[in-house]
Design a binder for these strands. Sequence first.
DNA 1: CCTACCGATCGGTAGG
DNA 2: CCTACCGATCGGTAGG
Lengths: 206, 206
Amino acid sequence: MSPRRSVAETRLTRDRIVERGVAAASVDGLEGLTIGQLAADLGMSKAGVLGHFGSKEALQLALLDAAAAAFARIVWRPAELEPPGLPRLRAVCETWIDYLEHERQIFPGGCLFTTAAIEFDARGGPVRDAVARLHKLWRRRLVAEARTAVATGDLPRGTDPEQVAFELVGLFMALNQEIQLFADPNAAQRTRRALHRLLATAEHQQ
Amino acid sequence: MSPRRSVAETRLTRDRIVERGVAAASVDGLEGLTIGQLAADLGMSKAGVLGHFGSKEALQLALLDAAAAAFARIVWRPAELEPPGLPRLRAVCETWIDYLEHERQIFPGGCLFTTAAIEFDARGGPVRDAVARLHKLWRRRLVAEARTAVATGDLPRGTDPEQVAFELVGLFMALNQEIQLFADPNAAQRTRRALHRLLATAEHQQ
DNA sequence: CCTACCGATCGGTAGG
DNA sequence: CCTACCGATCGGTAGG
């Protein structure tokens, strides 16, 4: 006898759960998310949902993983077509802004990584570690591109790459808040203005 | 017969609940906070805690109120000693940074307003409205000081006050994340560097 | 401000 | 992937 559901079907079901779970977590947070509500949204039983992951924590890690893969595809991959340094840094900032502007399609409640960082920054455990790891990874990449931009002379000598990355992240966070809390349609333009100033004329030396 | 507890005693109990509740909400969020855990922390019954407020939503609003009063006292009041415009803007940014650096005393889990904004930005209701109102109030004040600074010539002609306020908020958010998620001791210095550049040499014209 | 209690829901398990 | 169930906890109420 064949199993009641094939491996491929099981995989599809898991994907459905993850897609819906990511959207739900963007609204209620990874901790605020409940398995019962997610199951009801999907027309499944709680046990049916939980069976794919084993525990809520494993589900949270799976949702983070899937969200990070989507973020890499949307924000980082297109920028890899640009040469390293300032061109690539500019490109990733542009895709990042576009992502924050249109994230409602994938994250109806706003950037899951921002939500998760706030939710877990005062705790310990594997989920907090995974969230911090993602933020560090993206920060390191921004720093690396800024460093290359300084080396090639596209950013002024003496520019501190860490400082550039720090300020970029601040702009993205401000943009996310402006969109989610105030629904300000000018926020993206404001962010681009700050961005161009930061990457064109700024001096980052102490 | 006198009542079992005087009005003054009742007030003191309420203050104890609020102080502990603000600290707990900074860790778990205004929604993640539970009345049962708060009551246990205080050595009280759930009904004893809830009786002071009537509902969890009313408790959340009371905690926001108390936190906003503390924020006004710590960040805004000292800056009022400075003349309006750039001096006052600089002063409030300094007190804001100091507050974020030392907030663990009042907010062990990090800035409650940042947490609450993320927690409620995808919802409706009175708590979301109160959170948005606070953020808008502080933003308006930053804009007003920046506008005065432009009028007095302390910031370059053509500087957009809204743009300055937006970028300042981004710096504060980045600092909060840096402290809470990464515990980076250099974060405050980095923020001051960005701040001085923003308020000294930047051109904010389109 | 307490005890005692309400229905609802939580994450998770047993067994099929 | 389901039903049926577990103990724990949720916000809130009654009554004193």
